[in-house]
Amino acid sequence: MIYQDSKVLLEVRELCATVNGITILKGINLTVKSGEIHAIMGTNGSGKSTFAKVIAGHADYEITGGTVDFEGKNLLDLAPEERARAGIFLGFQYPIEIPGVANNQFLRLAYNTAQIQRNKDELDPLEFDDLVREKMKLLEMNPDFLDRSVNENFSGGEKKRNEILQMSLLDPRIAILDETDSGLDIDALRIVANGVNQLANKGNATILVTHYQRMLNYIVPDYVHVMESGRIVKTGGKELALDLEKHGYDWVNVEQPTTAGT
């Protein structure tokens, strides 16, 4: 939601990035304020996941130009774990499997790391168990997932729910959810969207990365951006997603590219 007294959380200016010498991001501009929900749409290969990973600090990508400020600080100076602790959360398009590491241990370590950051008490395994089971109920997740290895042999939809579970535990300032809707059936989509909506508040922001309009029926964005070849080529309100759905992505290209952001 757009608030009058909101403050800027994320400020991306002319961001360029390469991977293995190939330029992928070619000058991204984006401003995200507290309380807002943004959607980034675009065809496969347009650079959406690259953008998400660059913000999270993935080492494969080299920043070749531009700036990223997060709450007034230079985000690009921070290591990936420092960005996470500062409140940046990435819901992975393809969540990683970690055999041998129990999900509950992993979740508790991540949660306690965030608690330390917030100057709050860490939870022992029993206290944490109560908390995590409560959160899992909201996402209609089976508690069995706690004892299984992180994401190992989870179905696509289960992995996505596990991502949202982590988001709910970490309570980030800004969550970038990369194709969280893909691989979800309609019930799961509703549950996950419901979870995301419940977490959204005046102090945080959400960036939904998707190439379908579907999820935006459940999570209503304040802004929709269209990405094309590593640039944001169009920005509009929630109706832009419907236009895209109706006319396809080629429709954008006929129009004049605009400078994105608000």
Binding site: E81, A84, F89, I96, A110
Partner: peptide, 14 residues
């Protein structure tokens, strides 16, 4: 894998 370590890092774990 690097991707596993990145996943941990993204959750604040060094």
């Amino acid at each position: 894998g690097e991707d596993q370590l990145f996943y941990f890092a993204q959750r604040g774990i060094g």
